[in-house]
């Protein structure tokens, strides 16, 4: 087996920082689209955040949603074209803060979409403000003394929360900070895309993403930070798997 860049990725340089998880996850999704041969059937929805330009890189039809509204936009697309594969790609600010209402209701309706939830515990594009997923005590530009849980509450565990809804079908939290983690993340994404064929409900794949720039770390330190700190609040693995028939 010879490694190749998926044909479904556009031949341009990405704008992401060195060590950022987005480029990797873009590639994984596009690998899945290529392997399943569903380029013609796939429509993506990009968020507001670092991945706002996802449509510059993914060689599929896409829509750019307003901040937080990706799941509503995806609902509009999927309800009109129920046989297409529709996914949203959203960060933690987009999904867990401003867009948690649209996300929760889309999942509660069991929209047959895939939500790819990129959680790096900070607002990336606006350069490192506190997110709903920021770890307790974590320093950001808007929590300079560390996130005070008594003031801002605890980080929202989106996957655990959404797994409670009957509308969610498959919920998994993965990372992409090692070769093994990347393989597991790819497997979860592939599984989630395939589940869309069943029309059984919403799939949510959360990826704990490296953000070395805003964490003020080297890429290697960021990868280590995920294993040592992030997983304490956001443990990796499948959270909701379909019951065997």
């Amino acid at each position: 087996m010879v490694y190749h860049k998926p044909s479904t990725l556009v031949e341009v340089n990405m704008h992401y920082c060195p060590g950022c998880a987005h480029s990797l996850v873009h590639k994984l999704i596009m690998e899945v689209v290529e392997e399943m041969d569903i380029q013609e059937q796939t429509i993506g929805v990009a968020p507001v955040g670092c991945s706002v330009f996802a449509y510059d890189y993914m060689d599929i039809d896409m829509q750019e949603a307003a901040h937080g509204r990706a799941c509503a936009v995806a609902t509009g697309i999927k309800r009109l074209m129920p046989d297409k594969y529709v996914f949203t790609y959203q960060g933690d600010g987009d999904l867990a803060a401003i867009g948690i209402g649209e996300t929760l209701h889309a999942i509660n309706r069991g929209e047959n979409i895939l939500i790819v939830f990129m959680n790096n515990a900070v607002y990336g594009m606006t350069s490192g403000q506190m997110a709903p997923t920021t770890l307790p005590g974590m320093h950001t530009t808007t929590s300079p003394d560390g996130r005070d849980v008594s003031f801002y509450g605890a980080p929202i565990k989106v996957s655990e929360l959404m797994a409670q809804l009957p509308g969610s079908y498959f919920v998994s939290r993965q990372a992409v900070n090692s070769a093994n983690a990347v393989r597991r993340a790819k497997k979860a994404l592939l599984q989630a895309f395939k589940y869309q064929q069943l029309h059984k409900g919403t799939c949510l794949v959360e990826i704990i993403g490296n953000c070395p720039s805003n964490w003020k770390m080297t890429p290697l330190e960021a990868s280590k930070f995920i294993d040592e700190e992030m997983v304490k609040t956001f443990p990796l693995g499948d959270i909701k798997v379909p019951k065997p028939v």
Binding site: Q63, A65, R69, V73, G76, R79
Partner: peptide, 13 residues
């Protein structure tokens, strides 16, 4: 808010 964004998605398709 959701309605108008659903319109966006469907009209965009």
């Amino acid at each position: 808010v959701a309605s108008i964004n659903m319109v966006y998605g469907a009209a965009g398709a």
